[in-house]
Write a protein that binds this DNA or RNA. Structure first.
Lengths: 203, 203
DNA sequence: CAAATTATATACCGCTTGGTACATAATATA
DNA sequence: TATATTATGTACCAAGCGGTATATAATTTG
């Protein structure tokens, strides 16, 4: 009456998936070779195949994990900071810190993946998942803005969906800027300029 | 006394380069295979190699052409429209038209290339050329803004370099947004929001 | 211990890739 | 016409790719 019957596996699936995420983050779906993936995850090709399926499904699982982490971070910030403008700015600064962190893969997994779409033979399922990730991120911002509007923090005439699209676009731009070698200071300057597009409070 | 000694070539190098640009634009450096390139350019692999060098130098030439075209368009707009705010907005709309044009490759060659950097074994020369392209685009905007400041169209306390960084980031974001399936209307909404970050005129 | 079950390691397969050797076709010069 | 020169087309190469067949090691169950 145990859950493990045959030979136990020599690796932890969660940490292995984290390693896979790191590799995909750094190299993208196409350019991440099975050789590099197995080396980073510390397992052999057959083990990888048995545990995670082929490269495509492994990428989808890594993406899912990435999105979950980002979402958690987003929610944590917006739940802590009641003022939506402050929360948004804090969120943007946090993202900038991640994007320009030299100890982590550069840029955003989703943005990099989107840019890769259509280039190689990116599987349709991956393209779809990436588009959903962008839409999800935008929808999250949108909901925060609508809530803020209900709370009286945003004037009623503000087009919240446009505001959400703008800041989503900004995040993508920051990701690209970071990949083009921009330092944290430059990302902050961009955020400063962007925040000045925030509508003046209702009175 | 003629310039052509041996067998004449069966293709026009300029139009062939345009076709190569189209393929690279659509698929990126890595994912653009020699097979697709030669098919689009209408020549064989040895001819390509003899006329343009290897894939890397071909990409660099295509990128050079792309940058030249974009630069010309930029200059044309800013030379025609004396008001810098109007010129900038017209420039952004023009870029949005290109980015979302369904008859052309999606997004921006440079942005897509930047996102691809580090992913595959992107040659250092290509990475450098792409970074230079981004810097060049930003520097062009910067010079326009400084000029406008001298002309009295922008207040003296405006940090023009930050403004240039912001709109460069915006362009990158628009490119990614377009690749993620956004329609022209959404790009326009983003531009609207971004233009509201434009500083109020000096008085 | 024997049988069943699961994971591992090695070696391999078919395919595509960027790049090239080689023979041939087409032109200018002599 | 003969030669030199340049471009073309075919066929090919070594290397790397994603993915798998097969045999073996490690564990639980009987």
């Amino acid at each position: 009456m145990t859950h493990e019957r045959g030979r136990p596996r020599c690796f932890d699936p969660d940490t292995a998936l984290d390693s896979a995420l790191e590799v995909f983050w750094r190299h993208g779906f196409q350019a991440a070779s099975l050789a590099e993936l197995t080396a980073a995850m510390g397992l052999s090709k057959p083990s990888l195949y048995a545990a995670f399926g082929d490269k495509e499904t492994l990428y989808l699982k890594a993406l899912e994990r990435y999105v979950a982490l980002q979402t958690a971070q987003h929610i944590a910030i917006f739940d802590t900071e009641p003022d939506v403008r402050h929360a948004l700015e804090k969120f943007l600064r946090t993202m900038a810190t991640m994007l320009a962190d030299p100890t982590r893969p550069c840029g955003c997994l989703v943005v990099n993946g989107i840019a890769d779409c259509g280039m190689a033979s990116t599987p349709p399922a991956i393209e779809l998942a990436l588009h959903k990730a962008v839409q999800g991120s935008e929808a999250r911002l949108y909901r925060q803005f609508v809530q803020a509007q209900h709370d009286g923090q945003l004037a009623q005439n503000i087009r919240t969906e446009d505001l959400a699209a703008f800041f989503t676009s900004l995040l993508a731009g920051l990701g690209i800027l970071a990949k083009s070698g921009a330092k944290r200071a430059k990302l902050d300057a961009v955020i400063n300029a962007a925040m000045s597009a925030w509508p003046s409070p209702p009175r």
